[in-house]
Computed example of a mutant assay.
Amino acid sequence: MISENISRIKSEIPDHVTLVAVSKYQSLEDTKAVLDAGVNDLGESKVQDFLKKYEVLGDRPRWHFIGHLQKNKVKYIIGKTFLIHSVDSIELIDVIERESKKQGIVTDVLLQLNLAREDSKSGILAENLDNVLEALPGYQFVRVKGLMAMGPLTQNNDKIREIFVELKKIYDRIKEESVDATIQMNYLSMGMTDDYTIAIEEGSNMIRVGRKIFS
């Protein structure tokens, strides 16, 4: 079933779009099935669950941490992730910088924006983004590789599309204006099970899909 679901999704998305299988809450057996089906990017949102899977699977997958990351948990995942999607404050960047420096590595992250301004979601508000961007050149061990956002909680596809259009405009602006190696716009992570087709239409090159893979 997992393999069939993945084949169906892959047939729907362009080659340049990375499929991140959201393996949070899934068993180790089902997570391995995703890897066996040819998807190497796995998304986890709880540090404890991630570490349990990492103990078994190690660096076989490219691990994406996609959930809200508490500052006191950063030290446990540094050096183990391909991308941390959910960086939503300078304070969190400070901790990632410090823990990465201890290991002598550069940690790649995405800035999470809350364009829908929903209280239930974490993320940098649009009006605060420039302050974060201006601070980034001061960091040596954190590299911003793109942006991430979630679509609004609504059945209205027009409203979802509006958010994705806005995020793509911000992404393009940063990509055009940035001259610092700390800021590299490579990944636009937007789109989940219910809205990834809209996200791809509006320029996403990385989608995070869980339910449609595992159900």
Score class of each variant (00 low, 15 high):
G123Q: 03
Q155Y: 09
I163V: 14
K145W: 09
V132K: 03
L136V: 08
S120E: 09
L147A: 10
V132E: 08
Q155D: 13
L153E: 12
D108T: 02
Y139M: 07
I160E: 00
M148Y: 01
N131L: 11
V109G: 02
N128A: 09
G123D: 04
Q140N: 15
A149Q: 00
L111G: 10
N114L: 01
M148D: 02
R161F: 00
L147W: 09
N114Q: 03
D130F: 07
K159S: 08
N131T: 14
Q112T: 01
N157I: 02
E134R: 13
N157G: 12
K121C: 06
A149T: 04
E162K: 15
G151P: 13
I160Q: 05
Q155C: 06
L133S: 07
V109I: 15
Q155K: 15
V142E: 11
A126I: 07
P137Q: 10
L129S: 13
F141S: 15
E118K: 09
L129A: 15
V165S: 14
K159F: 07
I124G: 01
G151F: 01
V132N: 06
E166R: 15
V165E: 15
Y139N: 04
K145M: 13
I163T: 09
Q112W: 01
P152H: 09
K121R: 13
N131E: 15
R161C: 00
L133C: 05
E134H: 12
E127W: 09
F164N: 05
M150T: 00
G146I: 06
N128P: 03
L115Y: 00
G146V: 04
Q155F: 12
Y139R: 05
Q155R: 12
K159C: 05
G123I: 03
F141Q: 14
L136F: 07
E118S: 02
P152T: 08
D158N: 13
R117H: 10
I163W: 00
S120W: 06
K145D: 05
N157F: 05
V144G: 07
L111E: 04
N114E: 08
L147K: 10
M150V: 08
D108N: 15
Q140H: 15
V109C: 10
Q140L: 14
V132M: 11
D119M: 13
L125M: 09
E166P: 06
M148E: 04
N114W: 05
L110M: 02
G146T: 11
M150L: 12
N128E: 14
L111F: 06
L111D: 08
T154F: 03
A149M: 02
L110S: 03
N156C: 04
N114R: 01
T154S: 04
E134T: 14
L153R: 06
T154N: 01
Q112G: 00
R161L: 00
I124H: 04
N131F: 10
G138H: 08
N156P: 05
R143W: 12
M150D: 01
V142Y: 08
N157T: 09
